[in-house]
Design a protein around this nucleic acid. Sequence first.
DNA 1: CACCTGACATAAT
DNA 2: AATTATGCCAGGT
Length: 111
Amino acid sequence: MNTERLPTEFEKKVYDALHLIPRGKVTTYGLLGSYISCRSAQAIGQALRRNPFAPGTPCHRVVKGDLTIGGFAGERDGEPIDRKRRLLETEGVTISAEGHIDPSCLHDFDE
DNA sequence: CACCTGACATAAT
DNA sequence: AATTATGCCAGGT
């Protein structure tokens, strides 16, 4: 067994950043990347996609730079996305019918 | 709006 | 160990 790999420092940063996000708020991959000094949002998305701590890690609180839902559970559309949407709304995040998240729900790491 | 490029990390070969 | 392929993207043309 032991087919699972250990979480890397990079992933730890990503998960830790997620824990900094208060309930009812969301952040973007760009902001997260800026916080962990990573200019690649894709690497972050990959770390979230693995989500070794799921569902303990609120990966659904991360959205795209366009304030769109983005993807979830490795899916860019489908039911997972609908669940993510509902989850954010349940936590207090306002989302438009087009999938656009209210900018007031964005969380800043510098504060 | 569609497409390509750039930047970063992991898994697979 | 090195290279290739891929991945909840971002930004620019």
